[in-house]
């Protein structure tokens, strides 16, 4: 049965993130005007990297169950990691854990239980930085991912297949990415084909659609194309999404349209749940 391989240190799985850093990401978020889209996406990715690190953490020892790659596309396609990890493609999660760009002190406002708010400081590791300029070369980004993931799959033919997650807010400026996406989805390991997820984030305040199973109700042609490009969820992820309260069916695809911040974080979380880790 596909998508059931055990994940262990000799058979890790991989996640590859494609992040839109084009000029339009500088605009405010549709649902929450106080935040720019690029800030929100950077926060979500950094939070997700923390989640992945914690999933593999046994004390100070972080077990290499995952490998992570990040590329950004805005103007051109470039590596998303900076600092010690700059230019690396797939990085074992223990190295990710060891090399955040910096650890920021952030304030969190919280309910003090008496109707007021208290502020407290928390430390927040940052790997991925905000950047927003230039065009949207999505096709090229997907082609890059294709090359990287193909090499990875040759290296780990028995692993749980890698997931590629694309986060964007608009139309590509370098032509139709469908062919590139189809080629990407043809790559795979013995355990199944690569999973390709797409998240469209919004400037508008239209109702979000998550894990749709048909094109019905998707606003425009581009949304429909992204839906077509996305992989059908394997049964395990269907269960996970249902557990989190999403309405999903067997034909649901890994696609979110006009996602808000909460949906983005949840979608990323579900998309990276793999065969059971202990």
């Amino acid at each position: 049965m596909p998508y059931t391989a055990e994940i262990n240190r000799s058979k890790p799985t991989a996640f590859f993130f494609l992040i839109d850093q084009s000029g339009s990401m500088d605009d405010p978020w549709g649902m929450d005007g106080t935040k720019r889209k690029c800030d929100a996406v950077a926060d979500a990715i950094n939070r997700l990297l923390s989640t992945l690190v914690i999933r593999c953490a046994k004390g100070e020892d972080v077990r290499d169950y995952f490998q992570v790659g990040v590329i950004g596309y805005g103007g051109s396609v470039k590596s998303g990691f900076k600092g010690a990890l700059a230019g690396r493609q797939f990085v074992p999660i223990s190295e990710v854990a060891d090399n955040p760009l910096r650890v920021e002190q952030r304030t969190r406002k919280e309910d003090d239980g008496a109707g007021g708010l208290v502020e407290r400081m928390v430390r927040f590791p940052v790997w991925f930085e905000v950047d927003a300029s230039g065009s949207t070369p999505m096709r090229e980004a997907i082609e890059t991912a294709h090359g990287a993931v193909k090499a990875w799959c040759e290296l780990y033919p028995l692993s749980y297949p890698p997931a590629v997650i694309n986060i964007s807010d608009g139309e590509p400026t370098d032509g139709d990415p469908s062919r590139a996406a189809a080629a990407l989805k043809e790559v795979g390991t013995n355990d199944g084909k690569v999973l390709f997820f797409n998240i469209h984030i919004s400037s508008s305040s239209k109702r979000p659609v998550e894990f749709p199973d048909s094109q019905m109700g998707l606003a425009d042609e581009f949304a429909q194309r992204l839906f077509e490009m996305s992989s059908v969820l394997p049964p395990r992820l269907v269960d996970e999404a249902r557990k989190e309260g999403f309405a999903v069916s067997e034909k649901s695809r890994g696609f979110a349209f006009n996602a808000d911040l909460r949906a983005l974080v949840q979608f990323l979380d579900i998309g990276t749940r793999t065969a059971e880790l202990r």
């Binding site: 914690i54 999933r55 593999c56 953490a57 046994k58 004390g59 100070e60 955040p100 650890v103 430390r123 590791p125 059971e276 880790l277 202990r278």
Partner: peptide, 19 residues
């Protein structure tokens, strides 16, 4: 905490453990 000042964490299947 570890050397970056983040709490040391042990992940389990349905819980996390701090020291």
């Amino acid at each position: 905490c570890d050397r970056r000042g983040l709490p040391i964490t042990y992940a389990g299947r349905c819980a996390v453990v701090f020291r």
